[in-house]
Computed example of a mutant assay.
Amino acid sequence: MSFLDRIKKCNNVDDLSKFIPFVVEGARVGWIHHEFCHVLKKFDHIFEFFEKKICLSPQLLTYQERTMAIDRVVKFLAEEGWIAQRSDELYPVSTGYYATPFFEMDRSAISRFGVSAHGIHINGFVSLRNEIFMWIGRRADDKSTYPGQLDNMVAGGQPVGLSLLDNILKECAEEAAIPPDLARKAKAVGSITYQYEENNCLKPDTMFVFDLELPSDFNPINTDGEVAEFKLLPVSEVMSITANTTAFKFNCAAVNIDFFIRHGLLLPENQDYIEIQRGLHK
C-alpha cells in the first residue's frame, strides 16, 4: 500500500460512459448510472428521457417547483431502498460552487444523481517538542456512512444557506466542541477534488481544506454523537496509518496527504509525488 493507492481510491471512476448526463436548462448538473435510469421513468412528468441525457422537465420553471418535485422523487427512492433515509440536510444543485443553483436536493440523494457536493475538512494539529501531532476522530459505529473509520478532526458537507465560515463554526461546535473564537482561526489552505464511484453512484466532489493549530491543552469533545473518540497522534503515525492501511475514510486520507505535502513531510523524492499532486485535483 502507499499514499498513491489512497489517491487512486478517491479517483476510482474507470468508465464515465456508464453514466448519462443529468441536465437542467441545458446545463449538466450531474451523472446518472444507466442501470438506475429505469427507476426514474415512474416520474415522466418530472424528467424527460433522451438517448444521451436525462433532463429535468422544462415545465418546472422555478427553484421552488423543482425542489418540491425532486423532493417527491427522493421520498420514493428512500422508501424503495435506492438511497439511505433522508437526512433533511439540503444541498444546492448547480454547475459549480459559485454558480446560481437550480434547486436543492436532500443530501442522501446527491450521489445517486451524480451531483457535485462540497464540504469542509479541518486538520486540527498541535506543535509539541518540535513535532506535529494531529487530532484524529473515529466515526461512530452507528453512522450510516463509513462507520468506525478514521476521520479528520472536523468535517461536514456544505448545505444550502450557510457560508463556509458559518459551516466551520457549526461543525466545529457540533463535532469537537471548539468555541467560535478558536474556530475562526482555521486557515483556508486549498481545495481537493475527486471522482469516486460506489454502488453505481458518483461523487464528483470538492473539499475545502483548512488547518487549525490548537493549544496544547485543548481536547476536542464530540457533541452530536457522530464521533466515537478523538486521539492525538504524532504526524509520523498518521502518515503510516494513511499509507499502509485503509483505516481512514477514503477522502479523509486525501486530506491527510495534502497536509503532509504542505507541511514538508511528503517530499518530491517520493516517486509518486507528481501523480499524487495531480490526483488531489482531478
Rank of each mutant, 00 (worst) to 15 (best):
N152P: 09
F102N: 02
L56A: 05
V154N: 08
I132P: 04
T67I: 02
G148Q: 15
V154A: 06
A117M: 14
I132C: 10
W135I: 07
P159R: 12
L61R: 11
E104R: 06
D71Y: 07
C55P: 00
L77C: 01
I136M: 04
C55N: 03
L150P: 05
D88F: 10
G114Y: 02
M68G: 05
F76T: 03
R66D: 01
M134T: 08
L61C: 11
R112D: 08
S144N: 14
G124T: 08
M105T: 03
P159K: 12
F76Q: 03
T62P: 09
Y98D: 11
R139V: 07
W135G: 00
S108H: 06
A109Y: 03
L60W: 00
R66N: 04
M105H: 03
V93K: 01
E65D: 12
D88V: 03
P101W: 04
Y63G: 00
T67G: 02
F102M: 07
D141T: 14
V126R: 07
N123I: 04
V115C: 13
C55D: 00
T145W: 09
L150Q: 05
V93N: 00
Q158H: 15
V74P: 00
Q158Y: 14
E104Y: 11
D88M: 10
R107V: 12
K75T: 08
D142V: 12
R139W: 02
M153Y: 07
F76H: 08
G157F: 13
F102C: 05
F133M: 12
S94C: 13
Q158E: 11
S57K: 03
R72P: 02
F125W: 08
H118T: 14
G148I: 13
M153T: 03
Y63R: 03
F103N: 02
K143F: 09
S116N: 12
T100F: 02
P92W: 02
Y63P: 00
T67Y: 02
D71H: 11
F113C: 08
G124L: 06
A117K: 11
L90K: 10
E65M: 13
V126M: 09
W135S: 01
M153V: 09
I122M: 05
D106K: 05
A109I: 07
Y91N: 07
I83A: 05
Q149A: 12
E89Q: 10
A99Q: 12
L128M: 09
M134A: 11
R139N: 09
N123R: 05
Y146C: 13
Y97G: 03
C55S: 06
F103Q: 01
M153N: 04
R138E: 13
F113H: 04
Y146R: 13
F133G: 01
S116T: 15
E80H: 13
G124H: 06
Q64G: 09
R72G: 10
V115M: 09
H121N: 15
R112V: 13
T145D: 09
Q158D: 15
R129N: 14
R86A: 05
A140T: 10
